[in-house]
Design a protein around this nucleic acid. Structure first.
Lengths: 224, 224
DNA sequence: GTCATTCCTGACCGAGCGGTCAAGTTGATG
DNA sequence: CATCAACTTGACCGCTCGGTCAGGAATGAC
């Protein structure tokens, strides 16, 4: 509740005081929840402020505007995403790469389900804030992977499936458990997914997708 | 713009006049678009009215309330869903059933992308209006299919994969192209998905999922 | 014509929205 | 102590929200 030695301009980021850091963390966490549940338009600063335990004016003091807060959340989620997009090479083992891909995607969705839903809501609404990212960096990333997948198919390491559809399949199958959590929990009569559930799902997806694309895992050949 | 021989109470359904029918159709179509893009809270009756080409008062005259309009849209989407949920039996061929399942789900998402996104937005927000449906009819439907899938596995007709995860995989993979359309189009640099694209995706998903679950299609054995 | 019913809609209302602002508190520094 | 930047917040503003309502227009039965 006190600070005084840190330069920071109201409504702009850049501060590094402890108070600022803590409050911004609370606000971002609350905002991620509210935006994820109700979308950009449906979210209200009053809701966010209440969930963060702060007056509405304080939220605006730190974040400047609703739009700025939203953009900052999207950027944070994209940074998390980029953090796990390591490069792969044609020389790598397809089974290892695809399994690592599925696992890291599942881990991201599990660690940041609100962020995943925030992203989903943005895309559902036509991605008004993310057009540039989708048609730029993300497209390049997908095309680079697609090229490598095609090479693997040429070398007979996997079936000649469309690599872009394959990437979408992995994305959709993994994100589903965060984005449609309410449906998954309702149908399976659970309160939440345990670590064991997530491991079971990951193993299932890895098995079906690798086997479905004709990729043989090196460590454990599938029984037939 | 005129009618007079049809009994109908303001704000309640049940009428069957031509004017009412046409206006309701326009309103439902517009509302589906707006709710899909912005969620329940984010949608506004003014937006819906403008897209339907009617004054806001007229929307309320036919639909009674925002909530009633939304519930009616959800029910319409669930009716479409139920229309393609035909019964299956243990005696059926797994390959045929799974392919028909994937195809009918893809067709539904393609025919009613706004409805699919509306449903997705509802689930994203925690399914406040659909809890009962998820924990009731839909759960029963899933469990019935799961039982049959397990029997197939016992008979050696497919691998012993978790049938519920398999159903979620098919749902997520097929819905993805409606719900995340903006992402798909942005990454693949398209304006829209052609019938050929959809056929290609359907074939890809059918191949990967059937092969991934160890199901052999009767008509066309996969080339190796 | 009269009448009843349905359809239509501009004007309006209280509530909530994002955002502003001025007046304050706090705490480190000299 | 005084000073000052950082932080805090209730009051307020213009606007939009979902919803109401009164009154008029259209239509068919008689």
């Amino acid at each position: 509740m006190s600070q005084g030695d840190v330069p920071a301009n109201p409504g702009r980021e850049g501060g590094n005081g402890a108070t600022r850091e803590r409050n911004e963390r609370e606000i971002l966490a609350a905002a991620e929840r509210v935006f994820a549940a109700h979308g950009y338009r449906g979210a209200s600063l009053a809701d966010i402020a209440e969930q963060a335990g702060l007056p509405k004016s304080n939220v605006l003091y730190y974040m400047g505007s609703k739009r700025g807060l939203y953009v900052r959340l999207l950027e944070r989620m994209m940074a998390r995403w980029n953090a796990l997009l390591d490069d792969i090479s044609v020389e790598d083992d397809p089974a290892e790469v695809l399994e690592a891909f599925i696992r890291s995607k599942m881990r991201l969705s599990r660690r940041h389900p609100e962020g995943s839903r925030l992203f989903a809501a943005e895309i559902l609404g036509g991605a008004p804030f993310l057009q540039e990212y989708l048609r730029g960096d993300l497209r390049d990333w997908v095309q680079a992977r697609a090229t490598i997948f095609r090479r693997w198919a040429e070398r007979g390491l996997m079936d000649p499936v469309d690599p872009v559809w394959l990437i979408f399949l992995i994305w959709s199958a993994t994100q589903h458990y965060a984005d449609f959590e309410a449906q998954v929990l309702g149908i399976t009569d659970r309160d939440s997914l345990s670590d064991a559930d997530v491991e079971s799902i990951t193993a299932f997806l890895t098995r079906v997708i690798l086997q479905g694309c004709g990729v043989r895992p090196r460590t454990e050949p599938a029984a037939d």
